[in-house]
Amino acid sequence: MSDLLDNKEAATQAVVDFLTKKAKNKSKFYIKDFYAIFPDDKPRAIKNVVNKMVQEGVLEFWSSGSTTMYGLKGGGKQHASEGEE
């Protein structure tokens, strides 16, 4: 494992920075998109970090039923329209 995944705060900040930088273009990302942030780590370790961030309320899941994506909590067009009728 890389030093980044060993340091939870640095890993969380790296993911938030990545998502914030990309937020102009899109708000939801596949798990494989996070692999670029931690190129020296195994996919399972990266998924554990991302899932922990969901549990902590930093990120949220979005699922279409067949696809699971992740985004910053409260971000994106769909989140803004939820609750409207």
Rank of each mutant, 00 (worst) to 15 (best):
D3Q: 13
E85G: 03
I37E: 04
A36E: 15
A80L: 01
L19F: 01
S81N: 13
K42I: 12
G71D: 03
K47C: 00
S63A: 15
G75R: 12
E85S: 09
L19G: 00
A14R: 04
Q13I: 10
T12W: 05
D33L: 00
M69Y: 09
N7T: 10
K28T: 02
K28L: 07
D3T: 11
I31K: 04
K32W: 10
R44K: 14
G83F: 02
F38M: 11
E84S: 03
F34G: 04
F34D: 01
L4R: 09
L59E: 06
K22R: 10
K28F: 01
S66T: 09
K47W: 04
D17M: 11
K52F: 15
L72S: 08
Y35K: 01
L19V: 02
F61A: 04
K77F: 04
V50L: 09
Y35C: 01
S64A: 05
I46F: 12
G71S: 01
L59Q: 10
I46N: 15
I46T: 15
T20E: 05
P39C: 12
Y70A: 07
K73E: 08
N51M: 01
A80R: 08
S27Y: 09
S63D: 15
K77W: 00
P43S: 15
G76C: 10
S2K: 13
K73I: 03
N51H: 08
D6I: 07
E9N: 06
G65F: 00
